[in-house]
Nucleic acid binder design. Structure first.
Lengths: 161, 161
DNA sequence: GTCGGGGTGATACACTGTAACAAACCCGTG
DNA sequence: CACGGGTTTGTTACAGTGTATCACCCCGAC
């Protein structure tokens, strides 16, 4: 599982992500264009979840404006390739921090204090969730699991300020 | 747990809900105003999740327009009292179908075919979720659990058309 | 070359939600 | 009854999120 030892760790993640994204696209015969790279970088450069408009603003420089619609298209692409996740409760996006085991879902751990979003595996809830759905006669296709609270760092800082 | 035997069942639920809402407000010394009643009725009259603007339109009649902002205020009130839930992945609202055991969460079962939203208890995933959060050093304050898929009725209809 | 498809730019628009202020209402008190 | 304070609602305006549409560009295939 992915853990934030400190916020500098994200920088390293970003480099890994770009390499992974490049590999994924090459393997699937898809284009990893400059825009897509820049959007992925913008998402990856912060542990926090980024709004599409934030990304657009960050990528815009005097003379070259990146419109939100372009960001959305790049994000759609990146999400289809599993490189970016959408946080429904925040209307925001985060880089996918790790390769997921096939068939396994993700729990998003959203820190309400520092805004970072961590990922955890669903392996320990999968069984109970399946039983619950089975009992309800429901056939799942996609699950959203988002938990808001305080991450370890912020909790410690509150306890010993 | 709440089960949809057929869509007519929702009509009955709606009546129960209004009675319960009235009781809850009286017990807490809060006003169950006509607007709040109408909004709750509008939400309850359909098993589907309703958008705030849909509700506003449904409540508006020639000569008396209900503005979305009024609907939002009523929804905020109803959510605070636990009478209505918000579905984050749909930007929509549903009536709360049952009294929740204290300290227990809800899983929303969203049918992508007919749009109805059912509720299930989190009791069978609670343990695994707590262990996962504990391991991640994360202190939860609020969880969102939404599953999209096919409800029993729609699955049966697909299997035997 | 030109034809076609994917990607991008640009504008406009739809949908979702909130801020701010005024008017109406309720209710207890003097 | 009149007053005063809190709550609810109406109204307008606006911020934030996401999509539709069309034109343009690039590049590879025929």
């Amino acid at each position: 599982m992915h853990r934030h030892d400190g916020h500098d760790a994200c920088r390293t993640d970003a480099r890994d992500m770009l390499a992974r994204a490049e590999a994924v696209c090459r393997a699937r015969g898809l284009q990893f264009t400059p825009l897509r790279r820049e959007v992925l970088e913008a998402v990856a450069e912060s542990g926090k979840a980024q709004g599409a408009y934030d990304i657009a603003e960050r990528l815009s420089v005097p003379g070259k404006r990146v419109a939100p619609v372009s960001v959305y298209r790049a994000l759609d692409f990146l999400m289809e390739q599993g490189l970016v996740h959408r946080i429904a409760s925040r209307n925001a996006f985060i880089p996918c921090a790790h390769d997921h085991a096939p068939g396994e879902g993700v729990i998003f751990l959203i820190c309400r204090t520092c805004g970072t979003v961590d990922e955890a595996s669903t392996e320990e809830v999968e069984g109970g969730l399946e039983r619950t759905l089975e009992r309800a006669g429901f056939t799942p296709s996609h699950s959203i699991l988002e938990v808001e609270g305080d991450c370890g760092l912020c909790r410690d800082q509150k306890r010993a300020p």
